[in-house]
């Protein structure tokens, strides 16, 4: 089982304590009514889905309950780093 470092608890905990919450740094449009269909499509549906380095959100559901961001390699599933929500993209 994968061990994931929670940046809030500052502990490595087993994967079953966490829930994946999809791609990270997908920002909701600040002015929704000005968005075109193409921009809504990109925000709602288009995902990076990279083969390699991937930024994603996780939630420590069975721990502190907080969301954080992670960088993981999607070929090896190895975590490169985790960092708190709101911190710049790594």
């Amino acid at each position: 089982m994968i061990l994931i470092h929670c940046p809030y608890c500052d502990e490595k905990r087993p994967e079953i304590e966490f829930a994946n919450a999809g791609q990270a740094h997908v920002a909701r449009p600040l002015d929704p009514s000005s968005q075109s269909d193409e921009e809504w499509e990109a925000y709602l549906f288009i995902r990076a889905n990279p083969r390699g380095r991937h930024h994603e959100r996780w939630r420590h559901v069975h721990g502190c309950g907080r969301f954080f961001n992670a960088v993981r390699d999607t070929v090896t599933d190895k975590f490169e780093t985790t960092y708190k929500a709101g911190e710049p993209r790594r």
Binding site: M1, I2, N20, R72, T74, V75, D77
Partner: peptide
């Protein structure tokens, strides 16, 4: 499994 991956294997749980 719950996360994006190309590993062709998954978690035991």
């Amino acid at each position: 499994d719950q996360y994006v991956s190309y590993s062709q294997r998954g978690a035991l749980h």
